[in-house]
Computed example of a mutant assay.
Amino acid sequence: MTRRRLPCLAALLALAAPPAMADGFGFRTPSGNIYCNGSVDGGDLSCTIVSRDTGSAPAGIACPAGNELHVDMLQTGAVRAGCGGPSGRPSAYTDVAEYGATAAFGRISCVSQRTGFECRNADGRGFLLSRAAQRIW
Rank of each mutant, 00 (worst) to 15 (best):
T2A: 11
R3L: 13
R4A: 14
L6F: 08
P7D: 07
P7H: 03
C8T: 15
L9D: 08
A10V: 01
A11F: 06
L12K: 06
L12D: 01
L12T: 04
A14E: 09
A14D: 06
L15Q: 10
L15S: 06
L15T: 12
P18C: 09
P18D: 11
P19E: 11
P19K: 10
A20S: 13
M21V: 02
A22I: 03
G24A: 10
G24V: 11
F25T: 00
F25Y: 15
F25Q: 09
G26A: 09
F27P: 09
F27E: 01
F27T: 02
R28T: 13
T29Q: 05
S31W: 02
S31K: 02
G32F: 09
G32A: 06
N33G: 07
N33Q: 07
I34P: 06
I34M: 01
Y35W: 13
C36L: 05
C36K: 10
N37T: 06
N37Y: 09
G38M: 07
D44V: 00
S46L: 12
C47F: 10
I49N: 08
I49M: 12
V50C: 09
S51A: 15
R52H: 03
D53C: 04
T54I: 07
G55Y: 10
G55I: 11
S56E: 07
S56M: 09
A57W: 13
P58E: 12
P58T: 15
G60A: 13
C63L: 12
C63F: 15
P64S: 13
P64W: 03
A65P: 02
G66L: 14
N67S: 14
E68H: 09
E68F: 11
V71H: 04
V71E: 00
D72Y: 14
D72V: 00
M73D: 02
L74T: 05
G77D: 04
V79I: 15
V79M: 03
A81L: 05
A81N: 05
A81E: 02
G82P: 04
C83L: 05
G84F: 12
G84R: 11
G85A: 13
R89A: 10
P90C: 01
A92N: 10
D95Y: 04
V96C: 00
V96D: 03
V96T: 10
A97T: 01
E98A: 14
E98W: 06
Y99D: 06
A101G: 04
A101F: 00
A101L: 00
T102N: 01
A104K: 05
G106Q: 02
R107M: 05
R107N: 05
R107D: 09
S109N: 06
C110Y: 01
V111M: 01
S112H: 07
Q113A: 12
Q113V: 06
Q113H: 08
R114Y: 03
R114W: 08
T115L: 04
G116F: 03
E118P: 05
E118F: 07
E118I: 15
C119I: 11
R120D: 07
G124K: 14
R125D: 06
R125N: 13
G126K: 11
L129E: 08
L129C: 11
A132N: 07
A132L: 12
A133S: 15
W137I: 00
